[in-house]
Design a protein around this nucleic acid. Structure first.
Length: 518
DNA sequence: AAAATGTGCGCC
DNA sequence: AAAGGGCGCACATTTT
């Protein structure tokens, strides 16, 4: 079934419809998988018309995944581009979609779309693991639906609580272009400590002022400042923290992103090469923890918040098929279960795992990695192989087949030059991490897709951050939603990895305010 | 004047 | 406690 300029139920004649939202609503009763060019262009309008669909195939997202899988990273991914490639025609660049139109005029007709779909399905079938890639495309497409729905529904955001918090920390809202009182006072303190005016936002001025005071700094990063004994340090650190809050999540930000008690960020599905989501506005994935108290459930409602603890090491255990690690990953606290192998020290187990996944080399890492290599050889080898592939300029893939971008042409020059070793190691750390992070991201997508289907009427996913979800629902639904989260996590693990001793538990808590979730 | 780059830090 | 991988964004500064 294709939604384009026309609606085309498979096996039936395409038909033009006057009211597309109504037609989609009617056909949705058959629970089809809607195929459309780009969820971002089509779905927001349907949502505004009060129509939701349960499944879709997003041609653009699937095309991007396939192109990368075929080693053609970065080529235009639109349905039109895919159609042009099929016919050897000039391939148009991707352009921003046409918002506020249900079906953008430049999208393909139904028959052309069917052609593109058939091509994509054939390319998937030709892969060595078509089942996995089908799951990847389905999960990515479900993500697109969820992202649009979350932007539409918004996360509860109490503007009055936000204003009170800002006022408490910064002073009253200043007139445009001015610093809030407490920020201004801290700026004065910094200048006073140096004995002359210094702009605390200027790295240059700060480094110079510290140098004149006999303190040499290579940067003004807070961890470096904390080592310095100087009266300007304390007010400067306080200034930096509050200035960030003011400019990043202050009143101006709220004016732009909060409406009617809802924060509506724009999510970019697959915006990170690893398959994690990004945001193109609103900074939804970087909300400071201090702001969480502003996220409050509506009257008579609650927020069910859940995160997948220790997701990445669990995913590694499942992927690598490492029996020892998988056994530990069957426990609630993976690191405690590993501690015995690392002299009974949970922290050592954690450092070893993180160093293996991120390529850490400092501190105790080498010693602990040697233990890991001995005790969990398959898991160790799995990430080592990924790192080696990166160092040699090869591509790596996630469990379901998301493919890392190739190294840049600059990298290839660099790697044969005098600093080549460093460039190669950097690339190795990237690919080492990619296989784990990307698989964790697709587990999270699969989990959310399942969860979305399990949620009762009236419950809505309102936030997603890498391995954490938030559902806004009625107080009396909290228990059912919590059970749905646990079930979705278990189903996602089985969907990706089949029979495995690895567990990826998600424990949900129902809270009135996000701040109470941890 | 506008675009590009650098810095720093929030989140996972 | 940080490390170490991934981002987005604002502000300052430099380049065009």
């Amino acid at each position: 079934m294709v939604a384009g300029d026309t609606v085309l139920p498979v096996g039936e004649r395409p038909r033009r419809v006057a009211d597309l939202a109504a037609a989609v609503r009617e056909l949705e009763a058959r629970r089809p998988r809607w195929v459309w060019a780009d969820t971002r262009d089509t779905y927001p309008g349907l949502l505004r018309a009060g129509v939701r669909v349960s499944r879709c195939h997003d041609v653009a997202l699937t095309e991007a995944l396939l192109l990368a899988r075929e080693g053609r990273f970065g080529e235009p991914r639109s349905a039109r581009a895919a159609h042009a490639r099929l016919h050897g025609l000039p391939v148009p660049d991707d352009e921003p979609g046409a918002p506020d139109t249900l079906f953008p005029p430049e999208s393909l007709g139904a028959e052309q779309m069917a052609e593109v779909l058939a091509g994509q399905l054939a390319r998937i079938e030709a892969l060595p693991e078509p089942g996995r890639f089908r799951l990847l495309a389905a999960a990515e497409s479900a993500g697109a639906l969820i992202a649009a729905e979350m932007s539409h529904d918004g996360m509860p955001w109490r503007e009055d609580v936000h204003d009170a918090l800002l006022t408490e920390l910064l002073g009253p809202r200043p007139v445009h272009g001015m610093r809030p009182a407490k920020l201004q006072a801290l700026a004065h303190e910094v200048s006073a400590a140096f004995g002359h005016p210094v702009n605390p936002d200027s790295v240059q001025q700060l480094v110079k002022a510290f140098k004149q005071a006999g303190v040499s700094l290579s940067s003004t990063r807070s961890w470096e400042l904390k080592r310095v004994e100087h009266p300007a340090v304390a007010p400067l650190l306080a200034y930096k923290e509050l200035a960030r809050l003011f400019s990043f999540h202050g009143w101006t930000w709220a004016d732009q992103w909060v409406r009617g008690g809802r924060f509506r960020p724009e999510y970019v599905v697959g915006g990170v090469v690893s398959g994690r989501w990004a945001t193109s506005g609103g900074g939804a994935l970087q909300i400071p923890k201090v702001m969480r108290r502003v996220v409050v459930a509506d009257e008579g409602h609650t927020l069910v918040v859940a995160d997948a603890a220790q997701l990445e090491p669990r995913v590694l255990a499942a992927m690598a098929g490492d029996v020892g690690l998988a056994r530990a990953a069957g426990e609630i606290d993976l690191y405690s279960a590993l501690a015995q192998a690392f002299g009974g020290d949970r922290d050592h187990a954690k450092i070893a795992m993180l160093s293996a996944m991120y390529g850490g080399t400092s501190g105790d890492a080498p010693k602990l990695l040697a233990i890991m290599r001995q005790r969990f050889p398959k898991a160790y080898q799995f990430v080592e192989d990924a790192a080696k592939a990166g160092e040699e300029g090869r591509l790596v893939r996630s469990w379901l087949g998301r493919t890392s971008p190739p190294p840049s042409s600059r990298w290839k020059e660099l790697v044969s030059g005098p600093e080549g070793g460093r460039a190669a190691r950097d690339r190795g750390r990237f690919t080492r991490n990619f296989v784990v992070q990307a698989t964790a991201a697709e587990w999270a997508l699969a989990m959310m897709a399942v969860l979305r289907g399990l949620l009762p009427e009236g419950a809505a996913l309102v936030f997603f951050q890498h391995d954490e979800v938030m559902v806004h629902c009625g107080l009396d639904q909290a228990e059912e939603v919590g059970a749905a989260v646990a079930s979705a996590a278990a189903q996602a693990t089985r969907l990706l990895f089949g029979a495995t001793p690895v567990r990826i538990p998600m424990e949900a808590v129902a809270v009135a305010s996000y701040a109470d979730a941890k």
